[in-house]
Design a protein around this nucleic acid. Structure first.
Lengths: 328, 328
DNA sequence: TTGTAAGCGTTATCAC
DNA sequence: GTGATAACGCTTACAA
C-alpha cells in the first residue's frame, strides 16, 4: 500500500496526496476524500522513501558513556519525551567509556547516512573529539561538559562542590577529597577545584595525602580510595567525594574500619541518585538537575534541526545541596 | 559522491559497481579499478537508498523496560558486539516500565518502516503483547521471559531460587521471602515458587506474613518490605529476596533496626550486580548470565534476520549461586 | 488548486 | 561479465 494506491482510491494524483500529507495545499473536497481513504486503509508513509527524498531521517543519535548510570539515565529520560513529541526517534549509542568509540560514533552519525542531530553526553575531550565535532555537518549538542564553540548544557560543578564543602565544614575541620580523573573537566577538575576553593576560603590547609584523584566512578573505587586514605594514616573527619558512588564506597569502607558516619567522619557525594536516600545513613549530596539538562539539550537540538539558530548556546544548570544524615 | 560517480571514474557502469559491492560478480581487472576509486574517494554507499531498494534497514530495535538496570545493561552489552559485527545498528527503546509503551514499540518497529528485527527484554505479557508479537512480521526474540511459541532466552529462576534458598537454610530455619509482582513470571512467580519448593523440600512451614510479594525492583522497595516484615513481628533468621536491590534495601533496614547481618539475619539476592561485591556485608546472590543471554538472543535474531530457520527456539540459561558474607 | 514528471541512490532483471 | 533500464515510495518544481 503506497501513495499511488491511495491516490488512485481517492481519485487524485499522488502529488496531491503528498501535498495533503505535507503542505496541506489541497482543496477542501479532495482533502476530504484523501482523509477518508487514508483512515480506511491505515496508510502510513514510508519513512525510508521520505528519508531518501528529503535527506531527513528523523533520527537523533545520543552518544552515552555508559548505560546503567544514574546521571545518564536521567538525562536520557529528560530528552526522550521532547524528541518523541517532535517526531524524532532516538538511537542510543553506548560507548562503555571508550573515548575512541565516541569519536567513531560522531563520525558515523554525521556521515551522510545517518541522523539529523547528535547529543553527546561527554566526559573527556581529545583533539580527535574536537576535530570530529568541528567537522560535523549536523547539529550537535554537548551535554555534561562545557565546550567552547559548541552548544552545550552542563552542571555547575565548581560552585556545587564549593558549597557542599563549605556546608560540611561547618561541622568538621579535617577534610579529604576523593576525586575522579582530572581530564574529565566537570566531574574531575571542577569538582576538585570547588573543594579546594572552599578549603581556601576557610583557611584550611590540606595535607597532600588527603586528596586522592583519578578514581573511577564506581562504588568500589570509593572503597579503595577510602582504604588508601585510612591506611595512609590521614587524620580526617570529613570526606568530600566527587560522586555518590564513591561516597557509597567510602561509607562501606569506613564502616568496615569501625568508623561511624557521620559521628567520626562525615561523607558527601554528588549526583543525588536513587540510592542516596536509601543507603544508611542517607547521603548528603548535590542534587544535579540531570533530567532537566537532558530536556534543555533536546530543546536546543530540536530547534537547530528545525532550522533555528545555528549559533552556539551555553547553558549552565543550577544545583541544590541536599543535607541528609551522612553529615552532622 | 554517489555510485554513478564511482562508476564514471572507474570507467564502468554503475551496475558493475553495485555488483562489486554486493555479489562480487566482477572481472578481476574491473574489480581492481573500482577498488582503487573507492579507496581514493572514501565512497560509502547510502544506506538510505539501499534501505529503500532492498527493504532492509540494518537496524534492530531493542525494547528495554528501563535504562539504568544492572541486568538490562548487561544484556545490552552482550548483544552489542555481535550486532555491530554483523552490520546492525541498535535502536534502544526505553519504556520506563510502561507495558503499553512496550506494545506500541513492537507495533512501531514492525510497521513496514522500521527495523529488521526486535529484541524484547520482557517483564510481563498482556494479551496485547501476545497479539502484537504474533502479528509481528519481522523476527523477534524475547529476552528474560519464557514465552510459548516465540524464540526466547531466559534465566532459570525457579531452580536458582530453589538452590540459593536451600543453601541459605543450611544455617537458618526461619526464612522469609520478599518478592516482586507475580505477573512477572520469571522474576516474580518463578522465584517465589523456587523459594517455596526449597522450603517444602526441607519441611519448613512458612507463616503467611513471612512472604511479601508485589514489591518494586528497587532498593527502597526492599527497605519498605523489610520494615513491614519486622513491624509485623515475624520471627525470621533468613530473608530471601527476589532481587539484589531488594536485598540491599533489606540489609539497610535490618541495620537500622539493630539486626546484624548475617549473625542475626541472613540475606540473599538475585542478579549479582556490580554492587553485590561492594556493599557491606558482600551479598550472597545468584549470578545470572545476563550478558551471555543477551549474546544468545542476538545470535538467534541475527540468524533469523539472515533468513535462517524461522522455528522458535527456547534457551534456558544456567546460573550460579555466589556465597558471600551476607549468609552464614 | 492540480497533475506531470524528474529525481533521491540504490539493486534486480534483463538482454547482450 | 557487463550495461541499460526499471523499479523502490516519496517530494517538489513546473506547467497547466
Amino acid at each position: 500500500m503506497d501513495i499511488n494506491e491511495i491516490a488512485r482510491m481517492a481519485g487524485v494524483s499522488r502529488a496531491t496526496v503528498s501535498r495533503y500529507l505535507n503542505d496541506g495545499y489541497v482543496s477542501e473536497e479532495k482533502r476530504h476524500m484523501i482523509k477518508k481513504v487514508i483512515d480506511e486503509t491505515g496508510y502510513v508513509p514510508s519513512q525510508r522513501a521520505q528519508t531518501l527524498r528529503t535527506g531527513k531521517t528523523k533520527l537523533v543519535g545520543v552518544i552515552i558513556p555508559k548505560i546503567s548510570s544514574d546521571s545518564v539515565s536521567r538525562m536520557v529520560q529528560g530528552m526522550t519525551k521532547l524528541f518523541r513529541e517532535n517526531g524524532y526517534q532516538i538511537i542510543l549509542a553506548n560507548t562503555d567509556n571508550d573515548a575512541k568509540a565516541e569519536v567513531d560514533y560522531i563520525k558515523l552519525f554525521s556521515g551522510r547516512n545517518k541522523v539529523d542531530g547528535i547529543i553527546l553526553i561527554a566526559t573527556v575531550f581529545s583533539a580527535a573529539h574536537i576535530r570530529a565535532l568541528e567537522a560535523c555537518s549536523i547539529p550537535t549538542v554537548v551535554l555534561g561538559q562545557k565546550l567552547e564553540g559548541q552548544s552545550c548544557v552542563f552542571q555547575d560543578d565548581f560552585h556545587a562542590l564549593y558549597e557542599i564543602t563549605l556546608s560540611a565544614l561547618q561541622h568538621g575541620s579535617k577534610p579529604a577529597f576523593l576525586g575522579v580523573r582530572e581530564d574529565d573537566v566537570s566531574a574531575g577538575h571542577q569538582r576538585h577545584e570547588g573543594f579546594m576553593a572552599a578549603c581556601k576560603e576557610l583557611d584550611i590547609r590540606i595535607p597532600q595525602k588527603n586528596v586522592i584523584l583519578g578514581g573511577k566512578f564506581s562504588v568500589d573505587a570509593g572503597y579503595n580510595m577510602t582504604e588508601e586514605l585510612i591506611e595512609s594514616g590521614a587524620d580526617v573527619d570529613t570526606i568530600v567525594c566527587a560522586t555518590d558512588n564513591i561516597a557509597f564506597g567510602a561509607i562501606t569502607c569506613l564502616r568496615e574500619y569501625g568508623r561511624r558516619v557521620p559521628e567520626d567522619v562525615q561523607v558527601t557525594g554528588v549526583g543525588d541518585g536513587t540510592l542516596s536516600q536509601v543507603v544508611s545513613p542517607t547521603l548528603t549530596t548535590v542534587h544535579h538537575y540531570y533530567r532537566e539538562s537532558g530536556l534543555e539539550a533536546a530543546k536546543i537540538l530540536v530547534d537547530a534541526m528545525n532550522g533555528g539558530t545555528t549559533i552556539a548556546r551555553e547553558v549552565r544548570m543550577g544545583y541544590e545541596v541536599r543535607r541528609r544524615r551522612s553529615t552532622r
